[in-house]
Nucleic acid binder design. Structure first.
Lengths: 348, 348
DNA sequence: CTTAGCACTCTTTTAAAGCGAGTGCTAACA
DNA sequence: TGTTAGCACTCGCTTTAAAAGAGTGCTAAG
């Protein structure tokens, strides 16, 4: 990620071009920069510099006789070295704080609020990926009889997520049996991660006496099964509608791939979960994205962690011409708040 | 809702016009009908009849010298009397059945699947409104200690929905105390509806000895509070992306109001919940909708019931030029399947 | 009552012209 | 040697004009 620092004047021009293009969504010409940005240079000089910047790959021209727009490389340089750090206004900060105020809700509600506040703050669609259950720690299982031949199974993880399922029984089972099964399960599983439970423990328990009845075994299977499918459905999106304001999506044909990306069944959740490998803030610009359907987008993400082990990620999706400085600030701040809130849940 | 039956020939022409417009999305002219529909009439005759139909309000012209399109009244007549009933193909039916096959999941998962299958079937966005908790019956409350000063509260309703929240305590509380509070709550609340609990029971318990400690009271408040906010968030939407294929939304300006309708924070959930008053299938066309932002849409809804008391609703949203016959069939079928599935949960 | 014919209307498509923003190059200037 | 003014040229976008096409309403004849 090391880059050669360029000429200071070139930097100024690259920054001006990028700022201007982000603001106007139109290719920007030398004249505009000379007028609006006080560089003390004539359009002709700027033109020469821009030609250089284009040659070295930081700018590009949609067509001859149009202004320049930043290339992916240009945005990269801009994000890494040039852009002006902005901070949130006090109003914005307090809006975030307020959204996070209510502490009585579970983690799911917290994540819902996170996506909401993040999209409101940035005016772009915001995603929140809940941590994979696999890495979470088992806390509690609760069996509630529904009728003589059905019980409801509630599983609580260390981070406070609750999953539930209903189980039909072959034959009736007494309340006290349920209680003893529940107790032994809780004793055996407490403090383990779900992936441990899935891999080793399952077999181990099977061989031991503890799971000699198929009832217990079924419940174990239900627990691990419920996790598998949940992993794919744990992305929340909010503020999708925001992208419609972006000029690059004035035509439905451009809009469609973007919308499908944010719809059910896209590759986005998996992609985000891959990004969880690297912790902290990440900005991924246009074609830097691995997913081919994302070459016209940029994402700004930040990881958060819950219970010290499991890792989730929040992010903002926008056009390549994204207001990086505003978004980076917002994502950082919201991630920090979220982490703070989650600390409250994580005391095991 | 009684309407005068019109001339049989006029009916044929109205049906042909509507069918054709639904299929083509273009105003349809007399010539087209003469050619494609075997009415044994010349374009001129059809023209005369269409002029009549326009005068009586069933058809309208976008402009002079264009073909005709159905008015809301025209669609109404079409839906009520004219359209050909279609049934699902065996493939479609088995796709629905298959989606509903897995019985081990809770009601939430069931509703997720419902919206998914409904949008896949109709190629329009599909909504599912979960039943209001207010009318549901309390089944169980579970208190799980998280740490010495926090407990997790799980509430299970008669229909199998699970809500949860976290509660911070002022001071530590022993496991046995928790258990006794939990027991007395379960005894007192079991079998009541949540609205009863909210209104009468709250005060009643307060005066009785059962709730003389503020701990119990707090939990009661948490239970009722969690319901209130959930009522507004219990709509699921799937297949939003489908509308982008509809020619009426080729321009983003048309698309935007439609998308906001399906986004967070719209009036749609409330509107749907009002529709729950009338049970069974409903087709609401264009300006018949109460919401002003829905004058360009139609909805096809059907109610479902769970546990005999609480009522939910499923629906499909599309442009006024909707494939009513296909959609009506699909909504009816899916609602029937859903009801069937829910019967399994409702045995109290 | 039905239908062929025809003039008329109005939108959509196509073509051409003109505009304007912006560039690249050259030559002059500090 | 770096900077700037000037100018010819490119190319997309907008405007204008013309033509095409679809469909109607009316009239008159069958």
């Amino acid at each position: 990620m090391a880059f050669k620092r360029m000429d200071e004047r070139k930097e100024k021009i690259l920054r001006a071009t990028t700022d201007e293009y982000i603001a106007s969504a139109e290719p920007v010409g030398s004249r505009t920069i000379a007028r609006k940005y006080d560089l003390g240079l004539s359009p002709a000089t700027i033109r020469n510099e821009m030609a250089d910047l284009e040659e070295s790959g930081y700018l590009q021209q949609p067509h001859t006789s149009a202004g320049r727009i930043p290339s992916v490389l240009g945005y990269r340089y801009y994000v890494d070295a040039l852009m002006e750090q902005r901070s949130l206004t006090p109003q914005e900060e307090s809006a975030v704080r307020q959204e996070f105020e209510d502490r009585r809700r579970g983690i799911d509600e917290l994540l819902v609020r996170t996506s909401r506040v993040l999209s409101q703050l940035t005016h772009y669609p915001a995603m929140v990926l809940a941590p994979e259950m696999d890495n979470a720690i088992f806390r509690h299982v609760q069996l509630i009889p529904i009728d003589p031949t059905a019980i409801m199974v509630l599983v609580v993880s260390g981070s406070g997520r609750v999953e539930h399922g209903v189980m039909k029984l072959e034959s009736a089972i007494s309340e006290s049996d349920i209680e003893s099964v529940s107790n032994s399960l809780n004793r055996a599983l407490k403090g383990r991660t779900f992936s441990e439970i899935k891999s080793t423990l399952f077999n181990q328990m099977r061989s031991e006496a503890i799971a000699n009845d198929c009832f217990t075994e079924d419940i174990l299977r239900l627990i691990t099964n419920s996790l598998r499918s949940k992993n794919e459905e744990n992305m929340r999106v909010d503020g999708t509608i925001n992208i419609i304001e972006q000029p690059e999506f004035k035509e439905v044909d451009k809009l469609k791939p973007f919308l499908s990306l944010l719809s059910e069944g896209s590759n986005l959740p998996r992609y985000l979960s891959e990004l969880t490998n690297q912790s902290g803030l990440q900005v991924i610009i246009g074609e830097e994205n691995k997913l081919p359907e994302m070459t016209d987008c940029s994402v700004v993400t930040a990881t958060y962690d819950v219970g010290g082990r499991a890792m989730g990620i929040i992010g903002v999706l926008g056009p390549t011409r994204m207001e990086y400085n505003r978004v980076v600030t917002a994502v950082e701040y919201v991630a920090a708040c979220l982490n703070e809130m989650l600390l409250l849940f994580s005391k095991e």
